[in-house]
Design a binder for these strands. Structure first.
Lengths: 252, 252
DNA sequence: TAAATAGTGTCTCTTAGACAATATTTG
DNA sequence: CAAATATTGTCTAAGAGACACTATTTA
């Protein structure tokens, strides 16, 4: 880095952002029933031909949405912009999780991709169906998605993305972003059960009691709903609170 | 991404790796005393002139070690290589923690940097002093390092790196990489006290008891040392064990 | 009133944290 | 023996997990 001369170094052929857009949808939702949820990933199908009518690269395969970064923006801003263009949503939880730069990962040359994940709650997703243009877009269950024929190294990126979101759901308050601002214990439970089946979470009595002691969740005093059961259920909301995640401390 | 034409997109002018090399050194070490540790960051001083004798860019400023990524390697591999070249150490805990690509961050053009941190234990660092070539290399306490005149956007990268390592020390078993393979409770405690002053860690009796119940640390039965006290002290080692870091579970 | 989900009572066991007291060395 | 660090004893309070039981509503 001391002696820099542009000609000395080969430069990349492209700089891109990819986005793993996650949503959690109810597998079924009935009156007076707590939901059963499923974690979904949004993919697009690459068109067969490009704008010049030639066969497109990786045509017909499923891929993460994304695109080239503009020199006037960061990869993160590019991901925000592309997420907006693709799904019409803004102010969404978006996070960088990896760099994909293995030589040969893209047949077009030395192309570096920054991978991000986004959390789009169900109700924001309705908007997408409206904004949806010609390109084929579909939500796949994370249990199925890796069986698809995926473009480039997106199988690897998606595997990493799923692993990251599983951890984030349990180790941070990211579940917040899958839920409405006011939610019941069984709705939070349903979100968490997409990534764990531990008894502390799956046993209703245990979890209903635990939610009251979580430092980052507060009961909305006196406010109840009957959307998950005939008996009115207490509503909760996430609050900003710093959480102690140290391995060497007890949980407070 | 559908319609790709090389001429359509501007490409980056450079792709680099930077490395924040951390070590923890004893502030003082005496016979029969537990150590008092301090977290240090290794920086290099940029030379005044480049290989052609012209004034170097950001000359004379302190900077993270790093350099340009070769098209045949990943940024991570580049960081490994540069860490080896700079410090002579291999098989070190090295981790990617951020992408720095803000427009204008480097006056030479559109240059993207992947930031990594490395943990080099004290005894490996001795090797460095041997391998050390002409370039000026120094270790700075993280308490002081941000007061220096730093090159490029390295102040921002370093701020992030310090925050990341503080979290990693408490939220993962990264403390392992700062310690010899066999260590006493007070040695682990000294490492942790560089980033926290919570009573659960600073109180000797509490911590000496806690270390026995940590699922990722095991007592080395019957093995003791007198390097930290006159009374022989039990030795421990880290073991591979998966740790439950879920916010919704109790610690086991 | 039956059915379904929400929520409480209660028991047992474990653990954290505080701090006092004891143990084991060296010089 | 004094000094210093390591370690155990002991008390208190809180919390987890299990599971039985109660509460509240709709159809």
């Amino acid at each position: 880095m001391q002696q820099y001369d542009v000609k000395k170094y080969r430069t990349p052929d492209g700089y891109t952002s990819d986005i793993a857009v996650f949503s959690i949808l109810p597998e079924k939702r009935e009156m007076f029933k707590p939901p059963v949820m499923d974690l979904k990933l949004m993919l697009i199908k690459r068109s067969m031909t490009n704008s010049e009518g030639k066969l497109n690269i990786e045509a017909g395969k499923w891929a993460l949405p994304g695109g080239f970064v503009d020199p006037a923006e960061t990869a993160f801003q590019s991901a925000q912009r592309e997420l907006m263009e693709e799904t019409g949503v803004e102010n969404i939880h978006l996070e960088h999780f990896g760099v994909y730069d293995a030589p040969g990962r893209d047949p077009r040359g030395w192309i570096i991709s920054n991978a991000h994940f986004a959390i789009v709650p169900e109700h924001q997703l309705a908007k997408r169906q409206a904004n949806d243009d010609a390109s084929e877009v579909e939500l796949f269950s994370v249990k199925e998605v890796l069986k698809l024929d995926l473009a480039f190294d997106h199988a690897e990126i998606i595997r990493d993305a799923i692993s990251v979101i599983r951890h984030k759901l349990l180790e941070t308050t990211a579940a917040k972003d899958f839920l409405p601002s006011e939610f019941t214990y069984s709705e939070l439970q349903a979100v968490l059960l997409t990534v764990t089946n531990d008894s502390a979470i799956s046993l209703d009595a245990a979890f209903a009691r635990k939610i009251k002691s979580l430092p980052f969740i507060r009961e909305i005093t006196g406010k109840k709903t009957t959307r998950t059961s005939k008996k009115p259920t207490q509503l909760y909301r996430f609050i900003d609170a710093d959480v102690n995640t140290s391995l060497y401390h007890s949980r407070k």
